[in-house]
Amino acid sequence: MGRLLVRRLGGLATTLLLSSLVIFGSLYLAPGSPENVLFGNRMPTAAARAAARHRLHLDQPLPVRYWDWLTGVLHGDLGTSMVTGQPVADRIGAGLSTTVLLVAMTMVLVVVVGLAMGLAAALLPGRVDAAVSTLTSVSVTVPPFVASTLLISVFAVRMGWFPASGLGEGLGGRIDGLVLPACAMAVLSCGFLGRVTRNAVREQLEREHVQTALVRGLPRLVVLRTHVLRNALAPIVTAVGLLTAGTFASTLVVESAFAVPGIGQLTIQSVAQKDFPVVQAVALLLVGAFVVCNAASDLVQAVVDPRLRETGSTS
């Protein structure tokens, strides 16, 4: 168990390092440059442009810039935004809590609704199963950006229950503003988790060891809890891990659609402005979230299923 943890942490560091290289390189190769954003519509002189490029270290070769950035990050300095001049850490800090709250709300919705649908479909074959299966197969075809427009036009514009964009004051206001974005991301994921849960539980119900438990006279609820659900947990945990990571990525679209001031919106803005340090930091944050989610689901799997643990003796 300990070895598994150490190995996963090592993998996390390697993944972050490699992805930082890729992100840095792709920004460098993409057309456009941050100083154009600074100058806006003005046409600067060649000297002014050169001075700006020097100030932003854009005149240095890529490896040198990457190295400077990397050593800075390892010393806890994420750099300053090339566009606004603010420290990157401040810009990210402002949006991070919002995005984390949004992802958390989404995943609570997904886990509660998705599990409920999947369990209902698995345990009540026939009409319930057919109804839930229809619902989930429709919902997995609704990507967040489609759900966003639908939810805005119905619940924000027509009904006026929730704000169409932006967040209110305080935690209550923030939650109120995040309900629709969370729902927009949850639609597809609920359907996906529902299907995974249904299939995992169905598969376990047919397992021979469940028959053993039944033929020993154990109550049906005990068999369901301690054998069926317990063993179906592994694929469900994997799915939740993947969906959480995917939800972080979906915030890019949904936060822009609902004008939520989170990391997702900041990413889109910074890419448009070629603001290297900010893009680099938020992209790494997203990669980190992805890797952490996967590692967490792997660790939970190992807790759930002893066969995935590395045990020494087999006598």
Partner: peptide
């Protein structure tokens, strides 16, 4: 429970591996 007891052919499949 106590009336009949069933011994299955394949214990590997009939005992919960987790």
């Amino acid at each position: 429970d106590g009336g009949v007891g069933l011994i299955f052919q394949d214990p590997r499949a009939h005992i919960n591996p987790t």
